[in-house]
């Protein structure tokens, strides 16, 4: 009779940076050549960048920080912008700390509700077309993301509806919008909406509407994919215990669909955030618009590289924050499931 085998600890692998480098970068002549040539290129290119960065005229950024951040917001109103930004930062910091300490989600919702109300009050005397720079970029992104999410969810549900008229309408909307570039949608809204509203509607609002209409169609498609990723057995089990169609959607399908949708949804929102820069085309002075205005001034005529490198860094920072946040959220929601 065989004796029972005792459980052994897994073999310990000795891993030093040197063995790692040997295994991953220098195993064989091909990899060694590749590694060395890439390192050589990086050394050469990095050197050029470094020398340029040291000699660059960063004054176009440092002397105009206020313009970059809030645009041409009138000076007497500017304290409101600083307070609003400070509140948002404080709320974000509290959220991070709170999430780590395991505060209830309800408390965080309350915190953000209050913050948003306070920011709305701070901004109430400011007209939309007075805002510019990074604030305008963030505002455009926040409004179009915030509005396109619920609209997209509804249209996406409609796209999978059993009612033919609803399904046809939603499909037509999605297909029409997906066939048009965002620039065209923005131009169209900025020109044609004024036919309906007169000139009274600020260009910023028209851009917001255009971006929301555009993004909703994409959110709806993500939503449809999310709904369809939930197996038919889930719906059947929910209907079999007597849940109605809507309650099945709300309590069984959507919670699972949303989790599957997060990566695609965040990708969509990041590209929407970057696409705010297209509003330059209808004359808005968002972050990139401010950069272009500065370049038109005689003293900054030759600072093209500085301006675009700075815009690049700011866009990258915010996009990266969004993507890091979504990874945390995914990780959190992944607990206790497949």
């Amino acid at each position: 009779m065989a004796t029972l085998a005792a459980a052994l600890p897994p073999p310990v692998e000795r891993r030093t940076p040197l063995t790692w480098a040997h295994r991953n970068l220098f195993d064989g002549w091909l990899n060694t050549t590749l590694t060395l040539s890439v390192l050589g290129f990086l050394w050469w290119f990095g050197g050029i960048l470094w020398r340029w960065a040291l000699a660059a005229h960063w004054s176009v950024v440092t002397d105009n920080l206020r313009l970059w951040v809030v645009g041409l917001l009138p000076l007497p109103l500017i304290w409101r912008a600083w307070w609003a930004g400070g509140l948002m930062l404080a709320a974000a910091a509290l959220t991070l700390v709170g999430a780590r300490a395991g505060v209830r989600p309800r408390a965080l919702f309350g915190l953000w509700g209050g913050t948003i109300l306070a920011v709305a009050w701070l901004f109430s005397p400011i007209r939309l077309d007075q805002i510019g720079g990074l604030y305008l970029t963030l505002l455009l992104a926040a409004v179009s993301i915030g509005a396109s999410f619920p609209i997209g969810v509804l249209v996406g549900i409609g796209r999978t509806s059993r009612l033919p008229v609803v399904r046809l309408f939603c499909t037509a909307y999605i297909e029409a919008i997906r066939g048009i570039p965002l620039i065209t949608v923005l131009l169209w809204f900025s020109i044609f909406v004024s036919l309906l509203s007169g000139e009274s509607m600020p260009r910023v609002a028209r851009a917001m509407i255009g971006m929301t209409v555009f993004a909703s169609a994409y959110v709806a498609e993500i939503m449809r994919a999310g709904i369809q990723s939930v197996g038919r057995g889930q719906t059947e089990a929910a209907r079999a215990v007597g849940l109605s169609g809507w309650k099945t959607m709300l309590f069984v399908v959507l919670p699972q669909a949303f989790k599957n949708m997060i990566p695609a949804l965040v990708g969509q929102f990041i590209s929407l955030f970057k696409d705010t820069s297209l509003t330059v085309i209808i004359g808005l002075s968002d972050l990139l618009g401010i950069g272009r205005s500065l370049l038109a001034l005689p003293e900054y005529l030759h600072d093209v590289r500085e301006v675009y490198v700075f815009a690049l860094v700011v866009f990258f920072l915010f996009s990266y924050l969004m993507s890091a946040g979504s990874r945390r959220l995914e990780h959190k929601l992944g607990l206790g499931e497949r």
């Binding site: 089990a237 309650k247 699972q256 497949r338």
Partner: peptide
């Protein structure tokens, strides 16, 4: 609501605990 059904592939709701799987319909229906 008079007929219970058990499936070959269980079809439990993966985002809910065992307790919530059971309590969902009595609360909602």
């Amino acid at each position: 609501s008079e007929v219970g059904m058990v499936f070959q592939s269980f079809n439990l709701f993966p985002h809910l605990t065992a307790l919530d799987n059971i309590a969902l319909a009595p609360v909602q229906v």
